[in-house]
Design a protein around this nucleic acid. Structure first.
Lengths: 225, 225, 225, 225
DNA sequence: AATGAATGAGGATTCATTCAT
DNA sequence: AATGAATGAATCCTCATTCAT
């Protein structure tokens, strides 16, 4: 367990610091000194900073990917030939997202990391995530497709990303928003509160009427219906 | 034009590089060498890298803030005592957001920058933006409040941020998403297309039913209604 | 008087900053910004930082040199062929040193500058002072020689420097020492108090018995006498 | 010996350059290039330039402080209840000051450094020295107090600093003064010669008559007696 | 007489990485 | 399996000085 100890300490420290400051702003010195580990240990155990970043994600995404596959297996087994409703799909994903990091008590960190993965200039990371975990996402999207037969493919693609933005933006900036909500409205929101709030919004967004086509005269506001 | 030239070249180069790589990943050397300007010029004209980052934002947000105030003035003048509908408010904001940077042909850059402002570890930047431009946003939020009288204040707060996430996430990751959309669905989306697509989604999200309260028995799924 | 104004402001500011921080630690930017003068003004009016340092000293040493020459003229006229007592010479120097900068209310600054001139690595400055003001000092030393006929030349040379050290060290570190004296002994000493204290010490030091010669057997401690 | 080698080379080089030019005027590049050591080595081994400066002093003052404590222990053991004469105290200090750096063949450097510590704008250094070595000095002052019962406390405070100035000023400017003494009087003085010369002067200064009080009528020149 | 702009050299410090042990 | 030492490259920033106006 000697190796495991050092490796774990590095990962534990790295994920917190990355989540707090971002990747470029967190130096290996920051990590190793806070983890009380030798400076060379990161390169020794992981090979490079990039590999460390990927390892941090893998520690979340590997179990997530596995559980989500299992959950979808179960869902499909239960529904057989029947279509799985959108709400159930979303609920399943939410549950899995909440379950996995909850075991490590660091949902917030995971969310921040996800946000960073999209916004920080780490091409290697996006590539890595896509290669390693692309298929679960693809499987999920296909099920969503079956659940929303009325939605053109392109429209569904965009709406899923709209919602991804909603979720990642909100959850990754959670601390700041929570502070404001507390100060302004006296609300102490938990992540579960937030998921509760997100549910109707996401469903409504996915079910929103189609946009007017560009060529169409704009005198009828599509959202007015 | 001597000063204007150097200063402008620095700003033009900086905003592009910042948008491409982020702040920490862009060095002053990167900027000055690409702008073919002396390395010390940034510190001479702006004082520090932080101040340069703020100046890059100011060049967008100053005119935006001004135009948006004007647009809201006009809206309020036109509606008098009457309530301004939510759709009109959103439309006005969208128009202003699209107009201002369009004049500089760099809407995409502006969107990336906005996204970075939220996700990158630049506390000073968030503080700066809040101090300089907080009041336009506050004014807008107040008008949204009047336009959505049925929405509890806290709920409106969260939904606005949900939508902010949607917009910023989508527009700041635009290039990557556009590539995928093109490859998968043969769609060449312009930003205006995207705004058209966003409209019904945002409206539906704001009008979504209220979430079930926590104390309520959870056997009724709120989104099932 | 336009030029005079800028030049004076620069000199006034420079002498204070030099006295506070030393020469290398004071940048032209420090000086010009505090003096609210253009950065290029120093080089324009003085040619270089070195020349500014010299000018700062000249503003004190020119009048000092002149007054001291006059005072010595007067002394010699009064004593004619008679020897001028050491005490009178010292008193005359003290008076001149106190008089000149007192007119500019900056005795303390002058003393700090003198101390710096000796300790800071400004070869050009020592050379400049020696060239410009060496002759007054030489004249004074010659009178001291006549007043202390029993003292070997080399011994006198060293004792004069011992005393120079006493005076410059004390007066240039005055602020710190004054603070301690105040805290520990409840004394608020003025520079005039200090001079009063210095007088008997300097006189006793100059009149101290000659040291034992090196060749002499060391069983008699010279200071025991 | 790998570490010791680099660290020692840095310290050896730094103390010489600091003594020659002062702290601000000596860059880390100066030091590392002359010591043929990597530029980053200073920050690696010492952390910062400030810490290097302190380390340079510590290498002298640590053994000095230790030896001086021992010497005073021995003195007090020998004299028991009896008072230790001022001459013996001064002699002891002189001996210790001469002994310690002599082992490193760099008395001159040590003296220059001591002078710089007082005159250069390195607040951190004065603070460091005071914190680390204040107690030896305090102990010495207390013994001086017992050896000069006739001297008011404040007067003793000032006279000790007068003499400190004499010694530091002379010894830290030694090279220049030695050159002059050689040229003018054909004297090659060693440091031991200088100490021999300092002895009677310092003793006489400490035993000088008290100054006239301020309130006293000034028609009697106090030093005329 | 004076100044805003600009510059090249150099400042201390931090970086991720390598290597001998 | 692990580490202390070391390094070359790069970081941001400040410097005194110059120059066109």
């Amino acid at each position: 367990m000697a190796q495991s100890d050092t490796v774990t300490r590095i990962l534990d420290t790295a994920e917190v610091l990355f989540a707090e400051r971002g990747f470029a702003e967190t130096s290996l010195r920051n990590i190793t000194s806070k983890a009380r580990v030798n400076l060379a240990a990161v390169n020794y155990h992981f090979g490079s900073k990039k590999a460390l970043i990927q390892a941090v994600f893998a520690r979340y995404l590997d179990p997530f990917s596995e559980r989500f596959h299992e959950a979808l297996d179960e869902l499909q087994a239960r529904h057989g030939e029947q279509q799985i409703p959108l709400e159930v799909l979303l609920e399943t994903m939410a549950t899995t997202v909440l379950t996995v990091p909850a075991e490590r008590n660091s949902l917030k960190v995971f969310m921040r990391l996800l946000g960073l993965a999209y916004s920080q200039a780490q091409g290697h990371l996006r590539r890595y995530i896509h290669e390693q975990y692309g298929d679960v996402f693809t499987r999920f999207v296909e099920l969503v497709r079956q659940a929303t037969p009325g939605l053109p493919d392109a429209e569904r693609f965009w709406r899923l990303h709209f919602m991804l933005g909603t979720v990642i933006f909100t959850l990754s900036g959670l601390d700041a928003l929570r502070d404001i909500a507390d100060k302004e409205y006296g609300e102490q929101v938990s992540i579960r509160d937030l998921v509760r709030r997100l549910r109707p919004v996401v469903v409504a967004a996915m079910h929103a009427p189609l946009p007017a086509t560009l060529e169409e005269p704009s005198h009828v506001h599509p959202e007015a219906g």
